[in-house]
Design a binder for these strands. Structure first.
Lengths: 341, 341
DNA sequence: CTGAAAGCGCTTACAG
DNA sequence: CTGAAAGCGCTTACAG
């Protein structure tokens, strides 16, 4: 491997100058810089990341922490963040917690994340009180994406989950529905993963605003997957009498709901309406009405908010108040007025 | 930050001994090891990755290169690989090429990947002749997942794409179909991303084996996405006369096909049958018949094949011949015999 | 604008 | 089984 000394010798300068020239520091004369770049190119030299990190203290790497890559929203966020980060010259370390509690613990507490990365992006990652200490101790710049709980000093990008849920519920109410079921996360899990909490609140507020009393037996818990939606819907069928509409907290759950309803011989929307949140790629395919949220944009903006403190960002991107992105109702074929009678 | 010297002092040993004890090297007496571990625990010490890398030459990191995280198959592979790698103590650097040619070039040629990672997993990543030189020059252990082109010296894990395609086509033939369309990748793009090539070959061979002549106008090019499937199906509708069945090279394309057919007022499978390959999560939801392939298993096995050369693997996992995983036909509701007449 | 020298915090022969 | 010392390949004050 060619080292910095080789380049220095060839260019007739010191290693310090090579280092400066290659990193584009302003304190190098144009002529010298030219010679250094030429020598480096001829030797095919690039600095060893390990050595640079140890000497310089910067890793050129960002950690992106997500619950599950296999869920549409997170994959989309990661994809957008990856592109933005790599374009700025940063590597992306992926931590897919996958619901494994020990994975989160290991990540936040034991592994010295702060020596591996320059910044952290937490996507919809639950933080318990103890975790905040750990995160703060990291002493790293960071950003939270799609998380109701703010980390002090970190910017945030998210949507207004209550408003999105209210929009979805409002759409059903406007169609004339009154018995509207809701499928969402575990209500007792209020610690951190606030998405489902907020969506449930939006749902209830919309009902109350329309003088509809929320019925506990129409509020079913499930995880945010297709299977979760299926199981929750099966539970609704078991409980009966059936609602006239189902508002699922995400599109994947809505897809599971549609499948289970169909298997039960019910037609959507003739017998029962279904609406989700996301605008998953598949939503258009199955005609799912949903409240669209900009997933890629959240990843892109999150990455930009991270690059700012790292000195690679556009100062215009530096914001303190949360960046709240708009959502919008997309009406397709899975919602209709309730059947007469 | 506490450093190795602090631990050494506290334990009353040299830094060399601390280093050995903490890494579990066998050349440390039990008593000494105990004292070192205790001291490290008390100080909350873990070695600086940058320093370890520079001194030891190992990065503890693996690069995973995929075309697109937002596609079901790749997300599933990444998720499984991530878990396996993190459990073995490795970090995962994600490279999502996203169809950007310059991203692939940068990755393979300029960036000195070999100084950043200990091993590379290439998932369905096209390699042109020039790339092989670059990959070989990396001089790193690696594995290819879901790729027809082998990298010399690297193990491989994949399915038999031709057989999977033949199974799908054979299912339609067995139902009585003769005019079977195929939706797959760009036939002229034969360089490397061999998946679509092989699936097309399997399709043609199955037709020929059944004495059905492949018709060029029933073979439509598209990218491996829902939209790709939609567009290709729209093209088929334009060309007419319609086939009685469509075999899409992946489930996402099949989903797009189903959506477009429905929008055109055609019923699946009454008017036309659709089959895919994958067993995407959504396939069960929409009743898509498909040839299932084990995606998570490919990621898991790929990661294990990588860990072997890194000294963390089960020697039993060391294999040279390609690991070819089984696929199986999953019949749902999107396929049926062609309509009489 | 440039260089000599120290230092980043580990691991690894080498010697005992 | 353990330690002293060199070395990994850069960057960064400091001095000029």
């Amino acid at each position: 491997m060619t080292r910095i000394d080789d380049v220095a010798r060839r260019a007739g300068v010191s290693t310090a100058t090579v280092s400066r020239a290659l990193r584009g520091l302003p304190t190098v004369s144009p002529a010298t810089r030219e010679r250094v770049l030429e020598a480096a190119a001829e030797l095919g030299y690039t600095a060893s990341p390990s050595a640079s990190r140890l000497a310089g203290g910067r890793t050129g790497t960002v950690a992106v922490v997500i619950p599950r890559v296999t869920r549409w929203f997170f994959a989309t966020v990661v994809e957008a963040a990856e592109e933005t980060l790599h374009e700025a010259g940063y590597d992306l370390l992926l931590y897919n917690l996958g619901g494994r509690e020990h994975a989160r613990q290991r990540l936040l507490h034991t592994a010295n994340l702060h020596k591996r990365v320059d910044a952290v992006m937490l996507v919809a990652t639950p933080l318990e009180p103890a975790d905040f200490v750990a995160v703060t101790n990291l002493a790293l710049p960071g950003v939270t994406v799609s998380s109701g709980t703010a980390v002090p000093g970190w910017p945030r990008v998210l949507i207004d989950d209550r408003a999105a849920a209210a929009t979805a519920t409002g759409h059903l109410l406007a169609l004339g529905h009154r018995r509207i079921a809701h499928i969402s996360g575990d209500p007792s899990d209020e610690l951190a993963f606030t998405t489902h909490i907020d969506r449930r609140i939006g749902y209830r507020q919309a009902l109350l605003a329309a003088d509809v009393r929320p019925e506990p037996e129409l509020d079913v818990e499930a995880d945010f997957t297709i299977n979760g939606g299926s199981r929750a819907t099966a539970e609704l069928l078991r409980r009966g009498p059936l609602p006239t509409a189902i508002f699922a907290a995400c599109d994947e759950m809505a897809l599971g709901a549609m499948a289970t309803l169909r298997q039960a011989g019910l037609r959507v929307p003739d017998d029962i309406s279904v609406i989700g949140i996301d605008d998953h790629d598949v939503a258009g395919v199955v005609g799912l009405t949903t409240v669209a949220q900009p997933a890629a944009e959240q990843g892109r903006i999150g990455a930009r908010l991270l690059l700012g403190p790292l000195g690679h960002g556009d100062p215009a991107d530096a914001v303190e108040p949360p960046v709240i992105l708009p959502t919008r109702l997309v009406v397709r074929e899975s919602t209709a007025p309730p059947r007469a009678g």
